[in-house]
Design a protein around this nucleic acid. Structure first.
Lengths: 300, 300
DNA sequence: TTTCATACTTTGTCCAGGACAATGTGTTGA
DNA sequence: TCAACACATTGTCCTGGACAAAGTATGAAA
């Protein structure tokens, strides 16, 4: 039995939301302890997690709560649409198998093989997104436990970091600063972008996650950067993303380009923000890099 | 001007706390927008951050708010006591200088040198804590910006990961699982522990940050681990830490040892939890490892 | 048919102020 | 010196009302 604060941490739904849903939709209906405080059982938390996941895909709560249990189940276990059902490489399949069977050494080995075979950029561009999607689907349909997802993230990060670290230090323009805004906790996207740019010799400086806007601005001037890369996961509220991007844009000189990427940006492509370039796909980063170098007449 | 939600994210103080402080202590006193919602200016947010920092050191709000402005200032800029004022290595000083002057290449280079000279374990044990403390003090006294702290964390993590990655894969007992509980976002401690254990040939599996207790239990049985390492930063509420550790202890077989480390544990040493071993210092990990191996008659 | 502006609905966040339990602190007695 | 008690402090939770921003449907004009 979990308290409302624990449920907030585990599902990402704020206490206010949990209470207002209870009032409006009649779900969840937690029991109470002697003091009258809410206590949620595991089943309800599980259901809340599923709902959150579906909302991150664009469904709205009103619909979800109005659905019949069967329809809801079907939706929850259906793979995310839109992703072109790519043919799975045999090696990819092997990696997925390792995750499902908790074979961490095997996983490490198969990822290493894939990376060695494809090279860093192709690995980041083609393989990692496929794996991510597979993992996401398996998670949504309950075939994969949270701890297995954690292990996967950890191993991928480890691998990308070490691959990037083994590259010679980039010292050619542009100078790129990479980070996420406060509230964005997913760092894999950032690492993937770095994996695309670093092999091109760009000078990459990563600040890690959740840097406040004013701080990014200070870092931008301290390091005299040319490009600021910001990553937003699908779970980031698009409206907030747009607002923060505007604040960010106003906080640094126009000379500096902002490249905004990650799942959230896919829904915002038609919103044109002056001085902000959308890079929803990883290949877009390479394109942007090339454009920048041509525009600044940099020969590499 | 920031909304209450933004201040919560940036300071780590919950909305409830912000409102109740306003009611009780008369600080902060945000202005209001047209809708009557609170708007905090930068100065108040800065002050709140300082207060949070002092509270993480053990001060209670009542005291802090009752203090004269001068006394408060003095406290805020004083270095944390308790840390034995260690003599700073010249190389350490150089690294700190690089951070203060935003010289990220120089920083990387000087850290690399220190690591190469000392070896992974000594580096983790002697140098990293000193650097951490220096950074913490500089931050508290305003000499260091948040983005500089971010850069430092990022570079240290990078370095430790790559050093650990270059070790031969540990395949000797015990099998150790490393992670933090939900709510603990600081991962450097975890990496440092891994940096101590991996060179000893222990089989380390890291799940990254914020793994729910039930998931840790599942991972523990899936990987047949011998030891569970949990890291708690100073900012983790001790009371909650104790409660969660008890829940965690009950969720896995007694056979598995739990090693709890990090700043929070320093205040809990006299609380004896059966089956939980405190490892407040990094050297304690090595001691525990040796103990474990002797007790299980493992010859390495 | 498409595009755009307008009105309606949904939904997350905020507010006030009361309540309470857990923790810290100080005092008394053994 | 230590244990037990009472008192003060402090974070979290509660209810239920309010509102604005985002999404959605409707209808007019191109």
């Amino acid at each position: 039995m979990l308290t409302i604060a624990q449920v907030e941490r585990e599902t990402g739904l704020s206490k206010d939301v949990l209470r207002v849903w209870e009032r409006r939709y009649g779900f969840p209906v937690p029991s109470r302890d002697e003091a009258g405080d809410r206590l949620y059982d595991a089943a309800q938390v599980e259901r809340l997690r599923t709902i959150k996941r579906l909302m991150d895909r664009g469904f709205r709560p009103g619909r979800l709560f109005a659905m019949s249990p069967e329809a809801f189940e079907a939706l929850a276990s259906a793979p995310a649409a839109g992703g072109p059902a790519m043919a799975l490489d045999k090696a990819c399949k092997a990696a997925i198998e390792c995750i499902l069977s908790d074979d961490n050494l095997g996983l490490r080995q198969s990822l290493n093989q894939l990376l060695a075979k494809q090279g860093l950029q192709r690995f980041v561009q083609d393989t990692v997104p496929v794996l991510n999607e597979q993992i996401g689907n398996s998670w949504a349909s309950g075939r994969l436990a949270v701890h297995q997802e954690h292990l996967y993230s950890e191993e991928i990060s480890r691998l990308l970091r070490s691959a990037i670290g083994n590259l010679p230090a980039g010292n050619q323009p542009p100078c790129v600063l990479l980070t996420t805004l406060s509230g964005e906790e997913h760092g894999l996207g950032l690492l993937m972008v770095e994996g695309m740019l670093a092999p091109e010799g760009a000078r990459c400086i990563s600040l890690g996650l959740q840097t406040p806007i004013e701080e990014i601005a200070m870092a931008a001037s301290a390091h005299e950067i040319d490009v600021l890369v910001l990553s937003f996961s699908v779970a980031f509220p698009p409206r907030r993303g747009l607002a923060e991007l505007q604040r960010m844009r106003a906080a640094i000189p126009e000379r500096i380009e902002i490249w905004a990427g990650g799942g959230m940006t896919r829904g915002l492509l038609r919103h044109k923000l002056p001085g902000v370039l959308w890079t929803p796909e990883l290949t877009d980063c390479l394109q942007r890099l090339q454009d920048w170098r041509i525009r600044h007449a940099v020969v590499v």
